[in-house]
Computed example of a mutant assay.
Amino acid sequence: MSIIKIISIVDDDASVRTATEGLVRSLGFAAYGFASAEAFLASPLIDATACLITDVQMPGMSGLELQAELASQGRDIPVIFITAFPEERLRRQARAGGAIDFLAKPFDGSTMIRCIETAVGQSS
């Protein structure tokens, strides 16, 4: 029996969260959405998450701050960033922190699928 991998999606935009959850589920993964980085950090799913998809700019803690917090806790969760503001400085910061990719919204579904497959392969 195979264990279904959990993909967590953190985005303050409910429509983006819902659409991304649908894409993730269509690939056979479990998808859980969170409206904030703080909600994800408080979740019991944090240790079971095989891949994290997060927005960069959100109220409260940003996606980049979330990435740094996970690293400071010693959690090695592959991260895929999505953003409506694809600034090169932020892309470099995300990559320096080990991000799988940094995708501009609206992102191409096939690109996201490739990123998820890469991330899940790393977390196996």
Rank of each mutant, 00 (worst) to 15 (best):
A48I: 14
F40G: 06
A50D: 11
R17N: 13
T18L: 15
I46F: 02
I46A: 07
L64T: 06
L52K: 00
T83I: 00
A84C: 09
G33E: 01
I113N: 00
G97T: 03
Q73D: 13
V56R: 14
G22W: 03
L52Q: 02
A68D: 12
F29N: 09
K105E: 08
T54S: 14
R89G: 02
L45E: 06
L103S: 03
T83G: 07
F107Y: 15
S36E: 04
P78Q: 02
G22E: 14
G63F: 02
R17Y: 08
F81S: 00
R114N: 13
D76G: 10
G97W: 02
T111H: 08
C51Q: 04
G60R: 04
P106L: 08
R25Y: 07
Y32V: 10
M112T: 05
R114A: 15
A48W: 01
G22M: 11
D11H: 11
G74F: 02
R75Y: 03
R17K: 14
D11R: 11
S8N: 12
D101M: 12
R75S: 06
D76C: 12
G22L: 12
F34M: 01
T83K: 06
F85C: 07
G74M: 02
T49Q: 05
G33Y: 00
E38S: 07
C51G: 09
G22R: 11
Q57W: 03
G97L: 01
A42G: 08
L103W: 05
A50V: 06
S15L: 15
F85H: 09
D12I: 04
G109T: 08
T20K: 10
D76N: 13
Q73W: 08
R75W: 01
E21I: 00
V10D: 07
G28C: 07
M58I: 02
R89K: 14
F85L: 12
D101F: 10
A99M: 05
A42L: 04
S36A: 03
A71K: 15
L23G: 13
G98L: 00
Q67I: 07
A30V: 14
L103G: 05
G98K: 03
L103Y: 07
G97V: 04
